[in-house]
Each structure stands twice: as structure tokens, then as C-alpha cells.
Simulated assay, not measured.
Amino acid sequence: MQGAGDRHGPRGSAAGRAGRDARLDAAREQDLSCIVCPVDYVALDLLRAAAARGVRIPEDVSTVGFDGLSDGLDLLGLATLRLPVAEVAQAAVARMEELLVAAQDDAEGPPPPRRPRCGTQSSPGT
């Protein structure tokens, strides 16, 4: 998998176009199965560029965006990941409260940080 648009400048810039084209070239040359884009608008730009070059999404290479820009992206052929922002914010606030309480109660300071969990979960509407 390759990232699109990540270190190659904003969409529409010469650097952004070069990065997007490099990702499409790499997908063809290295027989990659998917190009992961950091945000949906970069993925949409990639879809346009792929169509212009005759690259079929998802037959030749799949693409996925990240942020769930708006409803209906699936109708355009874009898969997107939605981050449950409210849940993540609630968990962050709860963890900060735990650390603050622990720091006040323990003369040695707060407990060590937890290891982040990585995985996929399905939630309603995603």
C-alpha cells in the first residue's frame, strides 16, 4: 500500500500532482493492491487522475480515503474510514482525568502511559 498526497504537497500543486502520479505509477509497477490517502479530498483527486490515465478503480487498484468527508462518497467509488471523533474525545478526556487523579493521589507521579490499541471495530453508521 502507498500513501497519496502525504509528503507531496497540497492537492492541485505541481508537487501534489507529481506525488499522485507517482503513487499511480508505483501501483502499476509494483502491482500494489491499494493506495491509502490521508484525507478524502486527496482520494477524490486520485480517482480523477486514475480515470484520466485509464486506471480502473477498484479493478486495477483500490483506493481509500480517511475522514468520511460526506455522505455519498461510496456512490463515487470512494471507500473512506470515519474516525468516531466524539468517542475518541471522550476516551481522551477520561484518560486525562485518570492521570490527574493518579498524579494527585500518588507521590511518585502518574502511572505509565497505556499502549495504544490498534485494530478495527465496526460501529453503527460506519
Rank of each mutant, 00 (worst) to 15 (best):
A50N: 02
D45K: 00
R53Q: 10
A22L: 15
Q2W: 12
V36P: 00
G109S: 12
P111H: 06
L78V: 08
L24Y: 10
G125Y: 04
R82H: 12
A27D: 01
Q2A: 13
L83V: 15
A92L: 13
G9L: 12
A107S: 15
D60I: 04
L47F: 07
A92W: 06
A52N: 01
V61C: 06
V55A: 12
G125T: 01
G19Y: 10
V39W: 10
G54A: 06
G16A: 13
A18L: 06
R53H: 03
A94H: 11
R114F: 01
R117G: 15
I57H: 09
G109K: 14
R56K: 14
A22V: 07
S123V: 09
L44D: 08
D67I: 05
E108I: 03
V61A: 02
I35Q: 02
G65E: 14
A15T: 14
E98V: 02
C34G: 01
P116E: 04
S123H: 01
A94F: 10
A4P: 05
H8K: 14
A103F: 03
I35H: 02
V61R: 05
V36N: 00
G68P: 01
R95W: 09
V42E: 09
L32G: 02
E108P: 02
V61P: 04
L46N: 05
Q2G: 10
E29C: 01
Q121L: 08
A52E: 08
E59C: 02
G68Q: 07
G19D: 12
